[in-house]
């Protein structure tokens, strides 16, 4: 509440925004503010200048481009939650975004903010690695595309250079025969997940043909579970629980003052399987329909 005064600017273009970031070491990008401003209010972040990118019109909203969903970085969680296209082509995203914070956080918070903040327990970055999204990153002069899986480098750190902006997120639409699953354990409604799991799956016959699983809260950044994914192919959804230990090679939970690592690891096994089974069953339902 007792904050140190700082400056504020609304750049007219990504270029101008990046110039501010280059000029001022203490400048920070302000999007929805739902991660940054709590830190500022608590005195944990003391920026000299906030560069508000919300007025950059291109960064708002989402649309379908061929087989992919293109989401502007300033698109709020609430827009994702209520958008019919998201529900249709990326139902995993639509379901998981409902678990983010609370109504007010979703009304202001943005997908780009969530991705760039890189909290390892956040729902959306995990879902985006499962959906194999790509992020477009702009420094005003050059735009590059980074696979979602490579973006976060560790706890609250990313491949974003200090003068770069995340501008858009491209999510390939999964085919109509894919199902999805999302599972989360939090200590309280609306809290960051202790562990969350997201999965999409495609079945052929009664067996899993393709499965992708992501986990949040079990490593310094969201992870995929390639070992488990590979082993699941050709199995029935009912036979998945015995594969639970196969998440272990891909997670690295650590003890913190609140939660022991072994509990996070346990939840990872339970929730990965639940999410995978939900995804596989939804795929079977689609095929049956």
């Amino acid at each position: 509440m007792y904050v140190r005064p700082f400056g504020y600017t609304r750049p007219a273009s990504p270029l101008e925004a990046c110039e501010h970031l280059r000029r001022d070491d203490g400048a920070k990008v302000l999007a929805g503010g739902q991660s940054l401003l709590p830190l500022v209010n608590l005195g944990l972040s003391t920026p000299s200048l906030l560069v508000d990118i919300q007025s950059l019109g291109d960064l708002h909203g989402l649309h379908l481009e061929g087989e992919q969903l293109v989401i502007g970085a300033s698109t709020t969680h609430r827009m994702l939650e209520r958008d019919a296209q998201v529900r249709r082509v990326a139902p995993l995203l639509a379901a998981s975004v409902r678990e983010v914070g609370n109504l007010r956080v979703r009304n202001r918070g943005t997908i780009g903010g969530s991705v760039a903040h890189a909290d390892p327990a956040a729902e959306l970055p995990m879902c985006l690695i499962v959906l194999e999204a790509r992020y477009l990153v702009d420094n005003g002069a050059r735009v590059r595309s980074v696979p979602a899986a490579d973006f976060a480098t560790g706890f609250l750190t990313t491949r974003l250079a200090p003068d770069e902006l995340l501008t858009r997120i491209e999510v390939p639409a999964a085919g109509p025969d894919w199902g999805w699953g999302f599972q989360e354990v939090a200590r309280r409604a609306g809290d960051f997940a202790l562990v969350a799991a997201a999965a999409i799956a495609r079945c052929e016959g009664t067996l899993v043909a393709d499965l992708r699983i992501g986990l949040a809260g079990v490593a310094p950044r969201p992870v995929r579970c390639p070992t488990l994914e590979a082993a699941a192919r050709g199995r029935s959804p009912e036979a998945l629980p015995e594969l639970a230990p196969l998440v272990d090679p891909d997670i690295a939970p650590s003890d913190d003052s609140f939660t022991p690592a072994h509990y996070r690891a346990h939840l990872a096994r339970v929730l990965a399987i639940r999410a995978a089974q939900d995804a596989a069953r939804r795929s079977l339902d689609v095929r049956a329909a």
């Binding site: 709590p38 608590l42 200590r187 309280r188 409604a189 609306g190 809290d191 960051f192 003052s257 609140f258």
Partner: peptide, 14 residues
């Protein structure tokens, strides 16, 4: 370590 409403968890309506 719990000097905040993020960490000190009183129940919500849900």
């Amino acid at each position: 370590l719990t000097a905040g409403f993020f960490q000190y968890r009183i129940p919500t309506a849900l």
